[in-house]
Design a protein around this nucleic acid. Structure first.
Lengths: 132, 132
DNA sequence: CCTTGACCTTCCAGTTGCTGGAACCCTTAT
DNA sequence: ATAAGGGTTCCAGCAACTGGAAGGTCAAGG
């Protein structure tokens, strides 16, 4: 399989696949002409990576998950640990974004959005927080 | 005011303030010795930027908001437009994260987290999505 | 046989918003 | 004289790609 096929089948851009090789996540063989030659197992790895990335795992997490995936002697505790940690981070991010959204949606709701210059959004940004 | 004072009073790291000058968000004057000399209005701008960044606005949004803030002929519609757009992006991000979290927390919940290798998390990453 | 087009290759630069560090200057106190 | 604690510039790096340039390869068509 050439990179284009793998891109199509994994859903990852070719650029990203090359990048993943660069950082050592996959090691495709090479054809005599220099083209990357992917085997089914490479495709499988890339699909794994695509799904892990889709769940928001960092590249380093992905690397570790992949190692665990291929390590028969892993424990599910190791995997769960990574996942739980990531889950906590996601929750923190959501909480953070929600706070932003709440503040912001208040401001947006209060803003007339007309052709006059008065604007509670700018007023709020321009002075110390009161609604805190 | 030197940069250290402004950092303390604005809550922004000195490094960040220098960076903001680099990209043209503030233009402090200079003392004869080359030190940045901030006036109250510079501090005010920086505090504005800190709050806008705190609401998650991009640097470019911040630049635009600052321009509007200082432009007496602005319309609140222009401001609201930026804010609404940003609000939409935040909502999109939250939705995205929530989906990740839902999937991930299911997986974490199903994972025994013991010393055996069987792990639904890895299984899910290793094969095509079924719970989709 | 030559060309065209669609592939593939490498390498370098840019993205966002800082952050760390090196190497150096200025000021004040001891 | 020197040490501490400011300040300065510039360069590199983070995450995770993405875009683009310059070029090699391959199969099909004229």
């Amino acid at each position: 399989m050439n990179i284009g096929d793998v891109a199509a089948r994994s859903g990852l851009p070719a650029k990203t696949i090359r990048y993943y090789e660069d950082i050592g996540l996959v090691r495709p063989q090479r054809d005599p002409n220099g083209y990357r030659a992917f085997r089914e197992q490479d495709l499988h790895k890339l699909a794994f990576l695509g799904r892990a990335r889709g769940l928001g795992f960092s590249i380093e997490d992905c690397r570790n998950l992949l190692h665990l995936y291929e390590d028969e002697t892993r424990t599910s505790a190791e995997v769960k640990d990574i996942a739980q940690h990531h889950l906590d981070e996601i929750d923190a991010k959501i909480a953070n974004l929600r706070e932003m959204r709440d503040t912001l949606s208040d401001l947006v709701r209060c803003c007339a959005g007309d052709d006059r210059p008065d604007c509670p959004i700018l007023e709020s940004l321009g002075s110390a927080p009161e609604t805190n």
